[in-house]
Design a protein around this nucleic acid. Sequence first.
DNA 1: TTATCATATTAGAAAATTCTAATATGTTTA
DNA 2: TAAACATATTAGAATTTTCTAATATGATAA
Lengths: 107, 107
Amino acid sequence: MNDIIFKLSASYLKALSHPTRLKILDILKDEELCVCKIFEALELEQSNVSQHLRVLKDQGILVSRREGANIMYRVKDKDVFNIVNKVKEILIRQLNETQDLLEKEGD
Amino acid sequence: MNDIIFKLSASYLKALSHPTRLKILDILKDEELCVCKIFEALELEQSNVSQHLRVLKDQGILVSRREGANIMYRVKDKDVFNIVNKVKEILIRQLNETQDLLEKEGD
DNA sequence: TTATCATATTAGAAAATTCTAATATGTTTA
DNA sequence: TAAACATATTAGAATTTTCTAATATGATAA
């Protein structure tokens, strides 16, 4: 029963757990963009980016709408940035701590 | 260059993106426990749990120490719960919104 | 020191993810 | 309508993840 929330959480986190997908979120931080702009920014294959966009959309993290021949993507809810920013914070702190240790070692 | 932080973030998130590993964090929320208690609580194979513990430890999320024949695991930094709790929050809100939509549909 | 207990590691099969290349779909323009 | 453009989908190979079963390691107790 509570199993469900662990499973859903794991799926959500899995959708975020790829460098390209994190980059996509970063690119879409403040603006809605068409696929063409996104994969141009990433310098990756169109079909590859399309697949990553789908993962994020399936998870409800992105939404899309058609505008003429283009499909525009945007972040559905800015809350996702709470998560990715927090992760960044934790990692940066970890890196600093490691560095401090190494410096002490150097004495 | 900035690629590195995306890669590190993705690795961190990937370590979290498995139901069993989220359950382990939940079990270790407020206490340090030996492997025997952890896999008993999870009702999973010892070797399987041991492998999941390793993933979390390799990522720096858990730490362990020997106590006699036992190995005790604990969460290294409670910050990780900011992340998993935030995910839970987002998912619960999503579920509620979906439910609201379904109820409106029912009119 | 041998047996036992607790945990980790390894091997290998099955499943899932990721990427590229090719193709399909839907839109606009000529 | 045909050609060109934007995006999605599919197929298939390579890689990674996950699990189970078996074995190894290391600590304690007999």
